[in-house]
Nucleic acid binder design. Sequence first.
DNA 1: ATTGTGGCCTGCCCGC
DNA 2: TGCGGGCAGGCCACAA
Length: 262
Amino acid sequence: MPELLEVEIYRRFAHQTVGRTITSVHAPDDWFLKNTTAGELEGLLPKLKVLGTSRIGKLLLLELGTKKSIDLHLGLRFGMTGRLIVDDGAAIDQLEYSSDRNDPAWDRFGLTFDDGLMLLRDPRRLGGIELDPDTSKLGPDAWGISAADLGAALGKGRGPLKARLLDQKRIAGLGNLLVDEILWRSGFSPHRVSGELNANDNKKLAKMINVVLDELDKKGGSHQGDLQDSRSREGECPRDGAPLAREKVGGRTTYWCPNHQK
DNA sequence: ATTGTGGCCTGCCCGC
DNA sequence: TGCGGGCAGGCCACAA
């Protein structure tokens, strides 16, 4: 997916629709609707106005007010390949590892407004739409996280550090590329036992999470990291030239430098 | 409760 | 040119 940074770009883009009134719902794919149906959405949404947007981790929320005592927050998840299109422009034209074709068959969900439209285009259908998603299941957003909150998120777990950082219940928003970049820059091995970080480690790691997010946000996204170009077999560490290790950690393909990440 | 595994679904790229 | 295998930035259900 789009990781936190891409979803934040989507959110800013979606924010253009604040104040517009929904006129119709396009929900052709039942699979994509996680806790609702096309019929329910068609009954609830038209005539409602977009009141605001927010984001927790990789979850984008449209605030639509309250109707029939349902608090209408529409949750949009993008999976690994979802893109958001508002009016005539895609929020992000080129997603790494996703096709940049514009095939209308990939339109999984859409809203038409009195003025313009919003489309979620997802080739792989790993994203989804959820009505009033339970945000209490998500940890604190990674962007702006404090050392104390990071320490609490890491807890006393015995699993690898990388797996915990990817666990959205613990800390929300980091994906595979961001975690590899953060660990590489801060010099922690992805295999470090997450519960064994001390207060200094937490401080260092929390700071690096924020530095990387700030910096890559300015550069344009999660794939603009310094490690990115070396994420391939035969890749070498951009810092010290050592061969990068490539292995599965936390179920995800991981590139890291055994020479300086300890 | 925590941790690891497999699967979801589809497109693309590589090598034969 | 066609085909099979492997790959993919996410997430969830399930089992140990």
